[in-house]
Computed example of a mutant assay.
Amino acid sequence: MKLSVLDQSPISRGSSPEQAIKNTLKLADITEELGYKRYWVAEHHNTNGLASVSPEILIARIASHTNTIRVGSGGVLLPQYSPFKVAENFKMLEAMFPGRIDLGIGRSPGGSQDTRMALLDSINKSMSEFPRQLRDLQGFLHNTLPADHRYRLVKAAPRTKTVPPMWVLGLSERGAANAAEIGAGFVFGHFISPDKGQAAMETYREKFQPSPDFWQPISAVCIFVVCADTKEEAEELALSQDKWLLNVGKGSDIKVPSIEEVKKRTFRQDELDVIRKNRNRTVIGTPEQVKQELNRLGDHYQTDEFMIITNIYDFDAKVHSYRLLAEAFGL
């Protein structure tokens, strides 16, 4: 089993964006030493609780701070951007850190309609263009645009010897098909919506077409994990993530709350139902319990790589969770 990291640079209540970024850099150093394969950073906009808004900038900082771990985006929200410019950004990163960069692509609008239009500078662009944008991005990266393409003579620079492989992040069979048809890697977002995961992974394997990036299907599953020395401790640490996820669903303040703050809160039955449902997106327990469940899910999804996301209040406990997991799997 290979383990990787997805980091949204969450901001804990009472902390700051600056500290969240420092924590991201520290966690990247630690997980590299522990043997994690990749360290990906997210893209979120118009939020007070997640500091990672520009994966390209953060990737450059993390890659210069580390030595061997692959660094990538989870993911660049392509519907809001030019495929040509994304290709140039990541070829530049590849030129600086050859063989260490992953280009993960997401289809999300990036937030509310107003947020998306601000990203697009009020230019109306259809989300249905995503498959075409993926093909164009791949063409710019590998200089393989078809002869009749409008921008065939436009070359993405710098013209590096190697190109960062493309991955598509998805939650459904549609997302899996988008990845498969261009021969990209596929990351299923179990941490967002696990319901359609098995069907999505099967679709990806069935429809995969070899490409300059990958000659056979390669996939990973992203999942919330909270690991501690005892089950009781893990459950307590997860309380902050439970409340955070509840707030994310409501679109309210999404700074990660402390355990003490959560314990003081009285929850309505409908909120408890949401928290209980959200636990399906998470694995919580001791190292042995978490390992057993990830192995089970690995068989379920037919994958040998998990991207771990842990959004709890206490950073030291978060680091300990990643450390216990690495030791359990013998990274």
Rank of each mutant, 00 (worst) to 15 (best):
M201S: 09
L325S: 10
N280M: 13
R100V: 09
R152W: 04
D7T: 01
K2W: 15
R279Q: 08
D299L: 14
A184V: 05
Y39D: 13
S258P: 06
S252Q: 09
I123H: 12
V248N: 03
F140R: 11
D102I: 02
S54R: 08
P109R: 00
A28P: 03
F306E: 08
I275Q: 07
D242C: 10
S108R: 02
L25Y: 05
I192C: 09
Y151M: 12
K231D: 11
N89D: 13
G251E: 01
A156C: 08
T266E: 15
S108D: 01
M127E: 12
T160R: 13
M307S: 13
Q241G: 08
K291S: 06
E235Y: 00
R174K: 12
K22P: 13
H149L: 07
I312T: 01
M127N: 10
P146Q: 00
D148N: 09
F188N: 06
L153F: 04
Q138K: 15
V86D: 11
L171D: 06
K318M: 07
K318V: 01
E260W: 11
E235A: 13
V225H: 02
G330M: 00
R205V: 00
D136W: 15
P212F: 01
P164E: 04
V53R: 06
K37V: 12
V168T: 01
T68G: 09
G197T: 08
A95I: 03
A20W: 10
H44M: 03
Q289E: 10
W244D: 02
K161V: 05
S73V: 08
R268M: 15
D316E: 13
Q138D: 08
L324R: 09
P109M: 02
N295Q: 15
G35D: 00
Q113G: 11
S9P: 13
V5I: 11
A328I: 01
C222I: 01
V53S: 15
E233T: 05
Q209P: 03
D29I: 14
S52N: 04
F315Q: 10
T310P: 09
S52A: 07
I182T: 06
N48Y: 14
L245T: 14
C227M: 06
K263R: 04
V41Q: 03
E32A: 08
K2C: 04
E129C: 07
L58Y: 09
G139I: 03
V41I: 10
Q241A: 10
Q113Y: 13
G197F: 12
R61G: 03
R323A: 14
F90K: 05
S122V: 06
I259F: 05
F315I: 15
Q209S: 15
P212T: 02
L331I: 14
N89P: 13
S258T: 14
D114K: 09
L297Q: 03
I21G: 05
G75R: 00
S82L: 02
R296N: 10
D304C: 06
W40L: 04
